[in-house]
Design a protein around this nucleic acid. Sequence first.
DNA 1: GTCAATCTGCAAAGATTCTTCACAAATTCC
DNA 2: GGAATTTGTGAAGAATCTTTGCAGATTGAC
Lengths: 225, 225
Amino acid sequence: MKTILLVDDETRMLDLLCLYLAPYDFNCLKAESGKKAISLLEIEEAIDIVILDIMMPDMDGWKTCQKIREFSKVPIIMLTAMGETVDVIKGLKYGADDYITKPFHEAELLARIEALLRRSKNSNEKNLVFNGLEWNKGSFELRYQNKLIQVTPKEFELIGLFLKNPQKVFSRDHLLSTIWSQKFHIDDRTVDSHIRNLREKLRNEGFPIDQHLSTVWGIGYKWVN
Amino acid sequence: MKTILLVDDETRMLDLLCLYLAPYDFNCLKAESGKKAISLLEIEEAIDIVILDIMMPDMDGWKTCQKIREFSKVPIIMLTAMGETVDVIKGLKYGADDYITKPFHEAELLARIEALLRRSKNSNEKNLVFNGLEWNKGSFELRYQNKLIQVTPKEFELIGLFLKNPQKVFSRDHLLSTIWSQKFHIDDRTVDSHIRNLREKLRNEGFPIDQHLSTVWGIGYKWVN
DNA sequence: GTCAATCTGCAAAGATTCTTCACAAATTCC
DNA sequence: GGAATTTGTGAAGAATCTTTGCAGATTGAC
């Protein structure tokens, strides 16, 4: 079962969307503003798709979309009013994935949701985003502000572990047994070397790594958000 | 339900086309320029047909058609103005599938769309296109700029898998279990051999394979677009 | 069965990453 | 402040991985 987050300032539209989607075994969450949507996304990890109205007071759909993209790659469908021309370039810039025009047929909505879920299923293979830093297991890529950072396998696994466990301290021993398949004994200094190389590469790309990957004296390393 | 992308610089014509098509349960997307059309095609996989006006400022219909053909085989109908002679040779060259002359009857438009959809449904036997590289499962053919490249079955399956999963890293083990039915143990180096042969054949034909099929050190291989 | 095409495996050479070491720098504790 | 401990750094050799050339094994067509 998939979870859909519906965002619209009009309660009537939220109810209508829910009504459409309920029979198809979707779990619907509602938000009446961009802000609420973002709060929900931040605490609730299991949202599979967002349907976002463009015309909203305070924070409009585009702005909301942009905000969401700062921390998540969840698929987003923009809801446009009849007559609004869809600005595709704008959409690309803000990171929207698809559009649907009000009023719409139930079938069209369903089709677009299904299509997007299918698409995102392929590309969303364990993907972490943090402050413009993007870690993608499937493609083995680490990017900062969309720029590729060349990292070695060990460095890649290291930063992945940290991003998946913010605030958590890892001892060198723990890192060795998690990332190194612990064949024989490997020196603690080796971890330090890899951490150093990782820090240097990120620093060179402008990412404020020293604010996030910190050394806990006498214990190990940890990532702080 | 089928999705149609309408491309015309005149908003009036876009609306008119939409009006014609809406009652027949088509999902219409609009683009006011060739550039927007291409962006839309790139993010939206589910476009079944494109209707493309020839006379447009900046990038005209022919140019747009040509650009689209670099990455997609979506059926394209060219919209020509009354009095323009249809240059069939030009059409073939740029990859258009059909023509319709303005002004047209609703019935004629419908008929041509239906005909083209019927035609493309039959010929679409798993066909991938990327930057002039064409992979056709049905005919077991790999072509670059329409020139046939002789590949062996393993090479064909390999490049097919990569084209179907761009950005995704495949380990040698994964490739062996996917493409080789892994009866017994097969050496990792064997994968390398096939990759090498594939690279060489494509390189010899002028395809910039080294920009697209890359080795991920310590992990495997991947295709990058 | 013969032949050609394809697949597989190997070893050497080349490239990249990993690990260690020695020492400098930093931190803690007394 | 000074000793003890921990962390950071540069360099270099070790280890690992990739590429390449080649040859034997296998397969399928005739």
